[in-house]
Computed example of a mutant assay.
Amino acid sequence: MSSDSGKLAGRRIVVTGGASGIGAAVVRMAAREGAKVACLDLNLKEAEALTASLSGQGFAVASNVADPASIRAAMDTAATGMGGIDGLVNSAGVVAIEPAAGMEIAIWQRLIDVNLTGTFLACQAAIPHLVQVGQGASIVNLSSAQALAPVAGAAAYAASKGGVQSLSKALAVELAPAIRVNAVCPGLIDTPMNKGLAKDGDSGPPVPLDRYALGRWGKPEEVAACILFLLANDASYLTGTSIAVDGGRTFH
């Protein structure tokens, strides 16, 4: 999708985890494509700083996707502020790479609570608003290449993101034809979350670059471009899909 094409003109998009990483790229690009954007994030200060640069096309809402009351209130606020919701992007997530044998149950539970349950709760809160649109509403959930080809230590993360893929397929069946639901599986993307996985001063990637056919980190904007395609009418016959935006990792 070319920048500033206006393919999302008139659309009203909610992005969870929208203050940084892939979510922030979606917020910026969706606004440039003509959409109104509600940036939902725990870090309200960063969300407000981002949306302040969107020439009045975006606003920030504090939310915790793992808390049913918080995400429901945030979604209702977003719908009121934009006059409805046409699209939802579930980008909020956390990551941990820990060996399964010694993993504390709190780590497992946090990843499931935020990545999987949080995605479900956001979808659940958005559905009453999305169904009012009729056909044309769209949900895009962020899964991961780790759900397709996990590395050692990714048991909790892979399980949570694999659940997102299955959830997306189930919702695609349940919500059709009014709402399309798809998942995107990013590979090694240059985000603060992924950079934070480096330990003991090691600046290398958590997955060796030789596992990627393209041999490099991906950019948040490269994932966001796929997400925007799935939100737009160009993808009107796509639902229940999972698209790997991973530089060739899952086949290489």
Rank of each mutant, 00 (worst) to 15 (best):
53 S>W: 00
100 A>H: 11
23 G>M: 02
90 N>G: 09
30 A>L: 06
96 A>V: 01
8 L>V: 03
51 T>N: 06
31 A>P: 10
96 A>E: 07
18 G>L: 06
73 A>M: 11
80 T>N: 12
76 D>W: 07
101 A>I: 13
35 A>N: 03
9 A>H: 05
66 A>K: 11
30 A>Y: 01
23 G>A: 07
35 A>I: 01
55 S>F: 02
33 E>R: 01
40 L>F: 03
71 I>N: 08
21 G>F: 09
86 D>H: 15
49 A>E: 15
20 S>N: 14
64 N>C: 10
91 S>Y: 00
52 A>C: 09
93 G>Y: 01
88 L>C: 05
65 V>T: 14
18 G>R: 03
82 M>A: 08
81 G>N: 06
34 G>N: 05
105 I>V: 12
93 G>N: 05
55 S>Q: 13
93 G>E: 11
27 V>P: 04
30 A>V: 08
55 S>Y: 00
100 A>D: 07
12 R>A: 14
104 E>C: 07
78 A>P: 11
30 A>H: 02
47 A>R: 03
90 N>V: 13
68 P>A: 10
16 T>M: 02
15 V>K: 08
69 A>Y: 04
80 T>Q: 15
82 M>I: 12
28 R>C: 03
44 L>I: 15
62 A>Y: 13
19 A>D: 06
48 E>S: 13
89 V>D: 02
76 D>N: 13
103 M>W: 04
69 A>F: 06
61 V>I: 15
48 E>D: 12
9 A>D: 12
55 S>D: 15
26 V>Q: 07
96 A>P: 00
8 L>W: 01
36 K>T: 15
37 V>G: 10
49 A>D: 14
70 S>R: 01
93 G>C: 08
60 A>E: 10
62 A>E: 15
40 L>G: 03
73 A>W: 09
78 A>V: 14
18 G>K: 03
81 G>A: 09
44 L>C: 04
41 D>G: 03
103 M>N: 04
30 A>S: 10
23 G>C: 05
89 V>H: 00
86 D>N: 14
67 D>T: 09
94 V>S: 09
66 A>C: 08
30 A>M: 05
62 A>P: 11
83 G>H: 12
33 E>D: 08
19 A>C: 08
31 A>G: 13
54 L>V: 09
50 L>Y: 04
65 V>M: 06
33 E>I: 06
